[in-house]
């Protein structure tokens, strides 16, 4: 299965799960589990930055279309897609002799760097999105609580997903 088809299926799955499963869970007004952006985090290393930005924007916009809040997720995902390469650069070893995987994953990066990578981008995503939704810090404590709680539940979900669905690792080959 080619990367393209696989990612298209992932895209559809993530959006559907996010819209029809997670957005329907009314846990608490501050705690909304988000997982759809994992699609962007899982994109192959080989995707160029421009394409990454466009994919991020489109992903966000798609979710926006479902959640009746045009622009919030698009902006957050674009930021996510823009920052992703920097974070990956910081967290992966410079000499890529032992770094042969196609996508970011616990096995490719190691659990700790991978979780740090996910955590940074999750916090960034939630922070920016919450800010855009509220357009103010309001009571700053409320703001921080919302960001932290949403981040926490998202992290929990992502770890669960990683453990439940270990991806078959593909090595980067010269032929690809």
């Amino acid at each position: 299965m080619s990367d393209l088809i696989r990612n298209i299926i992932r895209f559809a799955l993530f959006i559907l799960v996010q819209v029809y499963l997670l957005n329907q869970l009314h846990l608490h007004q501050y705690i909304i589990p988000y997982i759809y952006y994992l699609f962007i985090l899982w994109l192959p290393f080989s995707v160029s930055r421009i394409n990454l930005l466009i994919i991020g924007f489109v992903t966000g916009l798609t979710l926006d279309a479902f959640s009746m809040q045009i622009g919030v997720h698009a902006a957050a995902c674009t930021l996510l897609a823009y920052v992703r390469p920097f974070v990956i650069n910081i967290l992966t070893p410079k000499d890529s002799s032992e770094f042969n995987y196609r996508e970011p994953s616990p096995r490719a990066m190691g659990w700790t760097p991978y979780l740090v990578y996910v955590l940074i981008l999750t916090i960034l995503h939630h922070f920016y999105m919450t800010f855009l939704q509220w357009l103010q810090f309001g009571n700053f404590l409320d703001f921080v609580i919302k960001v932290i709680s949403t981040t926490g539940i998202s992290m929990l979900l992502i770890i669960t997903v990683e453990l439940l669905f270990p991806r078959r690792m593909k090595f980067r080959t010269n032929t690809a």
């Binding site: 930055r49 421009i50 930005l53 466009i54 991020g56 924007f57 966000g60 916009l61 926006d64 809040q69 045009i70 622009g71 919030v72 698009a74 902006a75 674009t78 930021l79 897609a81 823009y82 855009l132």
Partner: peptide
């Protein structure tokens, strides 16, 4: 890349505020 990012951000925010 950065300009592209900015453009997409602006587009998203434009949609958001419109």
């Amino acid at each position: 890349t950065f300009i592209c990012f900015l453009a997409l951000q602006v587009a998203a925010l434009y949609l958001l505020f419109t």
